[in-house]
Design a protein around this nucleic acid. Sequence first.
RNA 1: AGGGGUGUCGCCAAGCGGUAAGGCACGGGAUUUUGAUUCCCGCAUUCGUAGGUUCAAAUCCUGCCACCCCUGCCA
Length: 545
Amino acid sequence: MIEPTNFIEQFINEDIESGKVSSDSIQTRFPPEPNGYLHIGHAKSLCLNFGVKEKYNGKCNLFLDDTNPSKEKAEYEDAIKKDIEWLGFSYDAVTHASDYYEKIYEFAEKEIELGNAFVCDMTPEEISKNRGTLTEPGKESPFRNRSVEENLKLFREMRAGKYPDGSKCLRAKIDMASPNINMRDPVIYRILRETHYRTGDKWCIYPMYDFAHPICDYMQGVTHSLCTLEFEDHRPLYDWVGITLGFKPKPRQIEFARLNVTNLVMSKRYLKKLVEDGSVDGWDDPRMPTLTGLRARGVPAEALKDFCGRIGISKANSEVQISYFEACVREYLNIHAERAMAVLKPLKVRITNYPEDKTEEVDFDVNPNEEEKRTRKILFSKTIYIDADDFSLAPPPKYFRLKKDGYVRLKSAYIIKCDDIVFDDDGNVKELLCSYVPESRSGNDTSGIKVKGVIQWVSDKTAVDVEIRKYGYLLNDEEYAGQDFSERMNKNSVTVFSGKVEPYVMENKDERPYQFIRTGYFKRLKVKGKEILSEIVSLKDNFNK
RNA sequence: AGGGGUGUCGCCAAGCGGUAAGGCACGGGAUUUUGAUUCCCGCAUUCGUAGGUUCAAAUCCUGCCACCCCUGCCA
């Protein structure tokens, strides 16, 4: 007996116990339509479907739901595969609705033969008009009672290309008076002369989602078809197809709430618009909530999966705060990211009592939290840079960092005292003149001086100039409601710093994330051929509280 | 009386008749050469609401309220 962690697994257990399905046959599928890139919302579905597969030792296919050739592209299919690979899920097979077009067609003929479907000559407008409303029943099509023979002949002619687009369609014969509008003789096949990215011009009729999906599920051996809440009303139709066609065992559709993240723009339509109008650099722009965007940002796949697991599965419409996601990212990065030093806004510091040409190496912890501590050497010298934010001309109370006549520790090195401030012509701080305490060297500090502030620094002898960027998210704040997306973008765009980092960060070939002391988590990224450092997520900062 | 759903802490979310798990956030304290991390401690006498059944209800029943989805030849 498998311990369920959500209501879907409870249902699966019930189906196993009741003998509906055998425990070794559990199968799900991840069913995106290849009409866009996967985003963080899909990650929830991915984790759910593959989670069930792993838990029940079952199967899970990547099923591309390509029944609408006018929206779908191979580019999207390729991107979807890459994203799933990145997340580390392995599917048992890649399948497409289009793989089953012939089979679906046969099932359609079967429905006709069973008297469950008819060819309708009404225009889309007429069908819409006769559908009735939420409170009034619809009117039956005048073509509803055509003979099986006539329907079969007409449907075959539809396939053969005898009729223009939209002039005829195949409809399920269910109930025009049903309170569920999806059951009012829904269209299950349409005529559409559009080149399909996989089947080309082989077909000029295409099955609709409601008809194709249950058939494809069944053909693949799917036992549990997990989808989002808006398909609840379609379940009776899903079941109708399975029952009329005699599917055994009939796949069970179970709905769950889709992921909403507070203020995060996730609509495929808007994301596509941003890409197309050049507001972002592409689907993989680090500001995008797409999986490829998150990957570019430096979000570890493990952190994303952890997030999906932690938010849980339910049927309640909910909105998860982005801080939850960020907490998961921080938690992972805290364990895995190497520490490094960097200054986003360099401020020159001259250590007046340090010899001009002397340098020395100090030991720096790669990650203080790891069990087997590793250290690496960092060069210290007379002139260094600290972050401008680590010095204050007018320090508030309880300010721990550098101020005039105050002491602060340079991480892994010496304690320094700020003796003097050099201003430029405009009255801005240009440089600090400090003195170091020779006996305060990290590791064997005999100075007896206690400082609360520890700041990062880089030596001018080794510092590498690099552009450092903080990327915002594409937010849909009330503040920006009604504004054009390009305007929202400007406000949530990119903050650029001309920073300096220790060479270690730039020397590594891989793109491992770093935690810059007291700053945040960063990774190297190439934007239009230029190497930059971009922020993955900021450090939790209690200083401002 | 259109149908289908959902309502448990600021945000997720367990709970399935025996007297409110956990996480994020938050508040307090300790340790810390990252104001990070880590570590303690606190954080719903109450489960949308009003009744009812029961020795006992978030869990069962009834009524009300709120929110979401459905009138594509989209998925």
